[in-house]
């Protein structure tokens, strides 16, 4: 395997959790809900996925449990923000703190244990292509799922009636309600979808990226995913581009260290966070682009009147 091939492979692996979490949050925000609890759902997914894979020996059961864990937290968030109209920003923060706490507690028993790794599924013929074959067609199931999700979300949001309803609820919940759309139901479904995606993203970290449990292993990736949604101005294909860009920034440190670049490791570790701030500034400088794409009801509470 050539150096370029190896780098491409690791970029995809590093980008996949970001992509999954961001595409889920994109749907949530398109429906008008801001869930800042991505980091919490992600890390609970990571620990539950690891635990389930350990117990059953099957990484696929792990993946399912990771999604379920994310959905349970998402349901909690949905109940508070959709039913009890609690402040979405504060509730999202609470979700992150709770998820980090729960994951730390549950994960204590798993520290230092070897994990179960998701196996790569090589697609015949295509995976033998030179240079890109291994990286694009010799990945594990979750990578393929993440790419399929981008296509599906992009299609559903902009080409189907369901997508129109989701966007209508996010842009004007009052009108959607008046037209007989159940705003709450749509938002619950979107939030649950976001939870499943974030959980899956976490599960991918502990089952494929680094198949083990490390306390705090999400390391801010949930927050970077949130930033990616803003960076992508709520467009699925731009999320894809952003996630791969950040995957590349994230693995830069490993390749730089391997080649003995004389820079403190902490400086390299800080790069993804600094890059996040940089892209947020770049995108927010273009206020028009942000304004026409931001769901108009993002973060606003909705109480049906009658």
């Amino acid at each position: 395997m050539g150096a370029f091939e190896a780098i491409l492979l690791t970029v995809i692996t590093a980008a996949t959790p970001l992509l999954l979490a961001a595409i889920g949050e994109l749907v949530v925000e398109r429906s008008g809900v801001l869930n800042l609890g991505v980091e919490g759902m992600m890390i609970l997914g990571a620990v539950m996925g690891f635990a389930a894979a350990q117990a059953t020996g099957s990484p696929y059961v792990g993946v399912l449990c990771a999604m379920l864990a994310g959905m349970v937290l998402a349901l909690l968030f949905g109940f508070l923000t959709i039913h009890l109209v609690a402040n979405q920003v504060a509730t999202g923060l609470a979700l992150t703190l709770l998820g980090l706490g729960l994951a730390g507690m549950i994960g204590e028993a798993f520290v230092g244990r070897p994990g179960v790794k998701l196996q790569a599924i090589e697609i015949p013929v295509l995976s033998d292509l030179p240079v890109v074959g291994r990286a694009l067609f010799g990945q594990d199931l979750v990578v393929y799922v993440s790419l399929a999700l981008v296509a599906a979300v992009s299609y559903v949001l902009f080409r189907t009636r369901a997508g129109l309803i989701i966007r209508a609820v996010g842009d004007n919940h009052g009108s959607a309600h008046a037209l007989g759309v159940s705003v709450r139901k749509v938002r619950y479904l979107a939030v649950l979808f976001g939870g499943a995606c974030a959980g899956l993203a976490g599960g991918y970290l502990s089952l494929a990226y680094t198949p083990q449990w490390v306390e705090g292993m999400t390391a801010g990736r949930g927050w970077i995913a949130l930033a990616l949604v803003v960076f992508a101005t709520w467009r699925p294909l731009r999320v894809l581009a952003g996630a791969y860009l950040f995957g590349a920034v994230g693995i830069l440190q490993f390749h730089a260290q391997a080649h003995g670049v004389g820079v403190p490791s902490q400086l390299l570790a800080a790069l993804p966070y600094a890059a996040t701030i940089a892209v947020l500034v770049i995108i927010s400088r273009n206020r028009i682009l942000t304004r026409i794409n931001t769901p108009a009801c993002l973060g606003k509470p909705f109480v049906p009147d009658r």
Binding site: L76, L80, L84, A90, T91, L98, L100, G101, L102
Partner: peptide, 16 residues
């Protein structure tokens, strides 16, 4: 680590 679980629960209940 239960401390952080308690803290997270507390904020959830406060907001609710």
């Amino acid at each position: 680590k239960t401390t952080r679980v308690f803290q997270g629960m507390l904020l959830f209940y406060v907001l609710a």
